[in-house]
Design a protein around this nucleic acid. Structure first.
Length: 109
DNA sequence: ACTTTGACTTGCA
DNA sequence: ATGCAAGCCAAAG
């Protein structure tokens, strides 16, 4: 295992692992995830990672709990921003003027 | 090794 | 509030 580098050391996997830790009804921003991984300005890279989320892992990684700065749902989010929003609302996440109320639902606020 | 690509963010007009 | 430019970062071509 030492020499072979699989998904366990890749940036993508680190992102997925962190996103898996976001509790139901809570959300985190791309920027927050990036910083928790040591990249102060790596929000974009996090988006890239989630975009590459294998269909197989869609069930185990709550991608819908990751939103843009200020609680905005990205227009280009996964299968569709509507689905993401629906899932969040279903979990009891409150939207204020079209944005997630981060003060109330931010997993790392 | 260089270029392109994005589920991003911030700042400024 | 709306729009756009620039900065940032990892992966893929």
């Amino acid at each position: 295992m030492g020499t072979s580098r699989g998904a366990e050391n890749g940036f993508f996997e680190r992102v997925y692992e962190l996103v898996r830790a976001i509790p139901r009804g809570r959300v985190a921003t791309y920027g927050q995830v990036a910083r928790l991984l040591g990249l102060t300005r790596g929000a974009r890279a996090v988006g890239w990672a989630l975009r590459g989320l294998p269909r197989r892992e869609e069930r185990s990684v709550p991608w819908h709990r990751v939103v843009g700065a200020g609680g905005r749902v990205s227009p280009r989010a996964g299968p569709g921003p509507l689905l993401q929003r629906r899932r969040l609302v279903k979990e009891g996440v409150r939207f204020v003027r079209g944005r997630v109320d981060m003060g109330r639902h931010g997993a790392f606020s």
